[in-house]
Design a protein around this nucleic acid. Sequence first.
DNA 1: CGTTCGATGCACT
DNA 2: GTGCATCGAACGT
Length: 214
Amino acid sequence: MRLPRAFYSRPTLDVLADLIGKVLVHERRGVRTAIVIVEAEAYIGEDDPACHAAAGRTPRNAPLYGPPGLAYVYFNYGMHYLVNAVTEEEGRPAAVLLRAGSPFEGVEAMRRRRMRARAARGAPARAIADAALCRGPGNLTVALGIDLHQNSVDLVEGPLGVEDHGVRPPALEWSSRIGIRRGLERKWRCHWPGHAAVSGPRTARSAAARRRPY
DNA sequence: CGTTCGATGCACT
DNA sequence: GTGCATCGAACGT
């Protein structure tokens, strides 16, 4: 069942928690790929220093200010597309960044896209485990074939969206968001504890983890 | 194992 | 010019 707009039109942290276990689907050229979302993060309002709306409205972050249920896709680090689901209500910039998922449908298509992306970088062709196909926000968009074409599209209907397939995750874990410098005190990263497809610091004692006071 | 660092493009100051 | 909501190869221990 496709999630309705009312699902997104709620406090972002509620939407974030409820997205874990839901299924992100993308149909492209007749190929349907889908993943169970296992990790995501909230970016809420102009007061959140890590939110793209922190500096006010710009052409790039305009979708954040749009109605809930839109996709917000942007290009980062010169090579990665990251996908968000816009939340709250029109005029209140907030979204949930989808960081990792477990393959649910179209695993071979996802592997093909990941391998092709690797080849394009000139990287050696090595096998990619299922759990690693959509581990990390940049890998997730490659596997699902998401890029700027999906920016601002409606998740409520259309080729990209979120469905409920009855998957119910265990008690969720909350922590600081990954890859940001400011706003670390907000524990707005939510994940399915122990799931193999979850990204983040490889070990709890990595330097990156130690640098983060939370 | 753990840690560092380069690739790569664009929004924004 | 600066700084990214990243990834993974390379190198050190």
